[in-house]
Amino acid sequence: MIRLENINVTFGKGTETEVCALDIPALELFEGSWNNVIGPNGSGKSTLLKVICGQILSLEGKIFITGKNITGSGASKRFDYVQMIEQDPRNNTVASMTIEENLRLYAFRRGSPALSFLKSGSVAEIRKLLARFDMGLEDRLHSQAGLLSGGQRQAVAVAAVLLRNPKILLLDEFTAAIDPKTAPKLLNIVKQLAADFKITVIMVSHDLEQVINSGDRIFILSSGKVAEDIATASVKITKAELVAKYTRVLEEEGVL
């Protein structure tokens, strides 16, 4: 589904502050798979996500999505089939608009007449989607997004993003700013919905608990390279083993 070939992202080339942020000779992610990416700060996790969604375009190498070379296409084109949720709950929603308005904004597809009014499609569908989050959001359709708590706002962001039927979902520490009670709940719902809609997910996280027994693969990045590629779908790994591998990567990098 997603294939990277000889990807190299270097900032400040030729200057004394030259730093290689990402160096991946080959990487293939399969359709509908859940891929976790962990690694120390500066290891290239966010860079990897930005390269896939098109926010970083100055790179060497090629990116293929379902066999098509999309290396040159810009972010706004890629957001037709990729969606990203970042750490800050304010990133994906418009504060002064209500939950319903935010969802309808996202549900509108390009190509439909821009001068049509926002209400299209039934409220019942939106209510059903929001009800899956189990946060009471379906009863608060007229609350403005800016007045919601971080977790609620992030949940609205997830619902909104999923309304666009993305093929690929990128999650950049998206539960980091949410309280520890809501975070696992939100993550579970994303997992269910991703499985339902066969979305390929790449989740960046600092939380080893989150990645330990979820998904198909765990990548440990180090200095822009893939240091470990653990296929957790076939081989169950214990937390101790994962911590050991992670520690080894940090030692090799010189962090520890």
């Binding site: 972010a75 706004s76 084109k77 957001f79 037709d80 969606q83 990203m84 304010r90 990133n91 994906n92 929603t93 418009v94 504060a95 002064s96 608009m97 308005e101 904004l105 996202y106 509108f108 390009r110 439909s112 821009a114 001068l115 049509s116 009014f117 926002l118 993003v161 666009r164």
Partner: peptide
């Protein structure tokens, strides 16, 4: 009140969302 109008407003309030909408 049209979709265009909402996008115009989004452009000012939260430009990153405009990009995420394509």
């Amino acid at each position: 009140k049209t979709h265009f109008g909402y996008l115009l407003r989004t452009c000012g309030e939260n430009p990153s969302v405009v990009e995420k909408l394509g």
